[in-house]
Design a binder for these strands. Structure first.
Lengths: 358, 358
DNA sequence: CACTCTATCTAAAACGTTTTAGTATCGCAT
DNA sequence: ATGCGATACTAAAACGTTTTAGATAGAGTG
């Protein structure tokens, strides 16, 4: 506390407590404190036959060097895995994006000795905490992140530590790490094109939040496609595609009244599309007649609830497989080439489809 | 092959290969084959300096006693955890039942040394395989099952082995193991009561599949409640609540034409409810005027898409927490009291609610 | 025969932890 | 002095695996 590292004579040339790459273990602390490994262990587990002073010292040392017990050692010794397993059928039912992603990543790991641990964190929580804990306890060989932001601090942290990982969604460092993403620029182009084909000219855009890279891609794709197809984009104000449905409703309602010539809606999420369509219909507009709507969806939500809507399927299962594969590859060769890919969407326009039997 | 255990003199009084509770390890096989542990290990990993004959013998022995490597040992030695971690935000968005369950179980484990591994399996796959593998490799201390059937063979297996577990949904052995379930009998009663209050008399029941216990509860609940409220239940034929929407559509359509006096629909899933409502409306009936619909849902699907429908919320997050807790308790004391609980639903009828501002 | 080579196997160490059995020290009653 | 019982610590074993550095033996070579 009193002196920094200014003059060396005060400190009795302590051997460096922790050599650079060394992971702190009980042995490390035993060396530092001069106590036996057993004593250190028992001190940390608050055993009754360790003096309070020793416990204090050990705990201080542990805090200082950032000791976290090695799970494998504990497991081997105690026979406890500290794992609870949830068996889950991979049903092709209406699983949300997340569930489907989990399921397909785990499936992608099938046949390898790896399995998938799910670590949820509250949205308002420190993003880094679960990551630090995972790396600290060495409880995984790789990590998969989703909902990555352009300058995601987690990605920066992982790259800096050289820890294997893959992201669902790109970052600004996309050329330096493994990722998988959906080609949202293409999605935007396909959407605008499909709406233009139906003779629509004024499209209301329910845009995604712009803090993730895909939002910007959609923005650019739409802008470009609108120029090509001679359409006028109208960006929804005051709401994004993941706003609460009430908020979207209000915003769409206002937009439609302000700009009555709107004859198309393009949404980046099925939920917002449903809300937008409902709102338009409540204002007396009929889908398919007065306007058309285009949106992407990971699970057949819109397809089922609003058959009139034009939908583009986002293949989450494919993303899961790819991410599993990328994670394995990153483990195998952390310095090696990074697997990544854009999933180019394919849109089959109902106009071109063989007429359904309805 | 030639002789069974008829006369003992043929076999040179082999010590029992595997004592009763013993888990086969490399040491076991070393003892059996007379080879060194190292040799056994290297034979299994197909090392180049082991003779083919030895490899054959070792592999045979391994198959015979059902050897599966201990993950903790491997992890400790190699430093590889064989875990890939997926970081997942616990967003309160429209997560499906499954995703929400996963998320809440994992949250329930927060603060304990346990974490959640998700093991998906294909619906057509052998139900027991993932379970056997998990127990075989000792890769978990407890398991949580969902979608349990009344006589679920997995439950029988786990009880027989004395392996800690908890189920989402009851079985016929519910008094002997930890479980958490939703009170579907009560759901049925509440639904019938709510429909009766609206003056409905002929209710079409889109029943759940009856291979799970909850289906039978709903059945009984409805039967009893209909008697009390003087309602006539009409069981949908040819489809259950998890049939494909086309199937439900056809069945509901047929039912409505055959029995025009139907003025209510009760569904055990939101998806089937949406389909049923749509079908009824396509036949010219208006919800709220000509009929009412009641369904339960885990995520606000129906609530968002069909606000006129009456919905009962099934609290999956609560189930997740309870299951996590039950699993931990089962680990702690496998012989101890089993935690279990019925989640009694509470229904707030919109008729009683303070009038909304719409 | 001695020497080297190769093929096959083994002993032992190591990973990090927890726990068992024990040692040393001291005060205190015999 | 001797024995006894705490108290506070430690040495060593064990968990199951993989890997390193030999060991053994037989074959081929000079």
């Amino acid at each position: 506390m009193t002196g920094e590292d200014e003059h060396e004579k005060t400190a009795p040339v302590t051997t460096p407590l922790l050599s650079p790459g060394e992971r702190p273990t009980l042995k490390t602390m035993s060396r530092i404190t001069g106590l036996a490994i057993a004593t250190v262990s028992r001190a940390l587990s608050d055993a009754p036959d360790i003096s309070v002073e020793t416990k204090r010292r050990v705990r201080e040392c542990a805090d200082h060097i950032g000791y976290q017990p090695n799970r494998a050692g504990q497991r081997l010794r105690t026979g406890k895995t500290h794992v609870v397993s949830l068996l889950m059928p991979t049903e092709p039912d209406i699983m949300s994006h997340t569930a489907q992603l989990i399921s397909s990543i785990a499936s992608g790991l099938h046949g390898t000795p790896y399995h998938l641990v799910v670590t949820p964190y509250a949205p308002n929580e420190d993003l880094m905490r679960p990551l630090r804990h995972m790396i600290g306890t060495r409880s995984a060989d790789a990590v998969i992140l989703n909902q990555t932001m352009p300058k995601d601090p987690r990605v920066a942290y992982l790259m800096e530590r050289g820890f294997p990982f893959a992201t669902h969604g790109r970052t600004i460092w996309a050329d330096q790490h493994a990722w998988f993403d959906f080609d949202n620029r293409r999605f935007a182009e396909l959407g605008i094109a499909a709406l233009a084909r139906r003779g629509r000219r004024h499209v209301l855009i329910v845009a995604p939040p712009l803090d993730q890279l895909y939002g910007q891609d959609i923005l650019e794709g739409i802008t470009k496609a609108c120029q090509i197809h001679g359409m006028t984009p109208l960006w929804l104000k005051g709401a994004t595609s993941d706003s609460a449905s009430k908020v979207i409703e209000t915003a769409v309602s206002a937009a439609l009244e302000e700009t009555p010539e709107i004859d198309a809606i393009l949404c980046s999420s099925p939920m917002s599309a449903i809300t937008a369509i409902d709102t338009a219909e409540q204002l007396g507009r009929v889908i398919g007649r007065d306007f058309d709507a285009f949106a992407k969806e990971a699970t057949p939500l819109l397809t089922r609830f609003r058959r009139e809507a034009l939908t583009l399927h986002e293949d989450v299962a494919k993303a899961g497989k790819a991410l599993a594969c990328a994670a394995l590859q990153a483990i195998e060769d952390p310095k090696g080439p990074r697997m990544s890919g854009l999933d180019i969407p394919h849109y089959q326009d109902p106009l071109d489809a063989p007429s359904p039997d309805l």
